[in-house]
Write a protein that binds this DNA or RNA. Structure first.
Length: 287
DNA sequence: AGAATCGACCGGTAGC
DNA sequence: TGCTACCGGTCGATT
C-alpha cells in the first residue's frame, strides 16, 4: 500500500531514470486509469511523444512529471497496488511489445529506457493536468489543488494543528484526510499514533495542541525513517522501480501486529475498526 | 455551507 | 478445487 515513503522512493527512481530524457512513444491501455481526462489515453499519445521530462515531483501520495517548455503535468497516483517499473528496451526491430496484463501505460525514452505503470486493482490513476499555484506557494497540478501539504513539506505545523483540533472526528480519521494533511495512509497513521501515545479513536478535539503537534512531528519522523529503508513491503504489491522491496516492515511497532507483544510494555497489540479502517494499537501505551 | 458518513470502485488473497 | 469475504485510497452521494 503505497503511502508517502513508498511514493517518494518511486518518485526518486523515476526522476533518476527520466530527467532530461525525451519521450519517443507513449502507449496507453485501459481508459479507466485516465478517468479524470475525458479523452483518456488519446490525450497522451498526442502530447507526450517529443516532450522532454523536466523533473518528477511529489506532494503526499501524488507524483507528477513536468516537461520542458510546457505547463502540463502528468500526475500518477498509485492507488493501493500501482507500481512503476523501469526496463531497458531489449529487442531490435519490430514494433513495441503489447502491454502486459496489468500494464496500463508505457513510456519509451530516447535512450532505450522504458517506464511502465502497472496496477492490478486500478485504484490508481493517471491524469494530465495543467500546473497552478497551490499551498505553500508551490506549483502543483490543478488536479491536486485540494491536497494539503504533506509532513515533509511542512516546517510550521501550527496551521495544521489548528485545523486538526477543531474537528471532533476520530484523530486517526483526520490523519488520513488528505485535505487536512497528505501522504499519511493506514500504516504510518498507526505508527505515528503509537509513537505519540495517542489512541486513534479519540476525538481530535480532545487532544492538546502540544499532543497534536507531537503527533504530526511523529508522522514526519516515521516517514523519514521509512524512506531511508526504501519503504514498507507487505507483499509483492510494493516494490521500487527496479523491482526491489522496502525494508521498513521490520521497524513497525503496531501495524499488522495484532496479538504480538508491545515492544514497550509487552501487552498484546489490539486491532479494531475506526470509520471502516483497521486500527492497530496498544491499549496500555495509547490513550 | 459545511461537515460527517457511507458505499462503490477492483481484484488478489486468505479462509472456508 | 471453488467460492466468498475482505482490504484499502479516494471520490461522490447522501445525511
Amino acid at each position: 500500500m503505497p503511502e508517502l515513503p513508498e511514493v517518494e522512493t518511486i518518485r526518486a527512481g523515476v526522476h533518476r531514470h527520466a530527467e532530461g530524457r525525451r519521450i519517443t512513444l507513449a502507449l496507453g491501455g485501459d481508459n479507466r486509469l485516465m478517468r479524470h481526462n475525458a479523452a483518456g489515453f488519446a490525450s497522451l499519445s498526442q502530447f507526450l511523444p517529443g516532450s522532454v521530462v523536466a523533473g518528477v515531483h511529489r506532494r503526499g501520495k501524488n507524483m507528477w512529471l513536468t516537461f520542458e517548455g510546457s505547463n502540463e503535468a502528468l500526475v500518477i497516483h498509485l492507488g493501493m497496488s500501482g507500481q512503476v517499473h523501469v526496463a531497458r528496451r531489449d529487442s531490435e526491430g519490430g514494433g513495441p511489445s503489447p502491454l502486459g496484463r496489468h500494464e496500463h501505460m508505457r513510456l519509451h525514452l530516447e535512450d532505450g529506457t522504458e517506464l511502465s505503470f502497472v496496477d492490478a486493482r486500478t485504484f490508481g490513476h493517471i491524469t494530465l493536468s495543467p500546473l497552478a499555484q497551490g499551498a505553500l506557494g508551490r506549483m502543483v497540478p490543478a488536479h491536486i489543488l485540494k491536497v494539503s501539504p504533506d509532513p515533509l513539506e511542512l516546517e510550521d505545523f501550527e496551521p495544521t494543528v489548528e485545523r486538526v483540533i477543531r474537528t471532533s472526528r476520530p484523530i486517526k480519521t483526520v490523519l488520513l484526510d488528505q485535505h487536512v494533511i497528505s501522504g499519511i495512509g493506514n500504516i504510518y497513521a498507526d505508527e505515528a499514533l503509537y509513537r505519540a501515545g495517542l489512541y486513534g479513536g479519540s476525538p481530535a478535539s480532545a487532544g492538546s495542541k502540544q499532543q497534536i503537534h507531537d503527533l504530526l512531528v511523529a508522522s514526519k519522523t516515521v516517514m523519514q525513517e521509512a524512506i531511508l529503508a526504501g519503504g514498507t513491503s507487505f507483499d509483492q504489491f510494493y516494490v521500487d522501480v527496479e523491482g526491489d522491496p522496502g525494508y521498513f516492515e521490520r521497524s513497525l511497532n503496531v501495524y499488522g501486529l495484532e496479538g504480538e507483544p508491545c515492544v514497550a510494555c509487552g501487552r498484546a497489540i489490539r486491532k479494531i475498526t475506526i470509520q471502516g479502517r483497521s486500527h492497530f494499537y496498544c491499549r496500555t501505551c495509547q490513550h
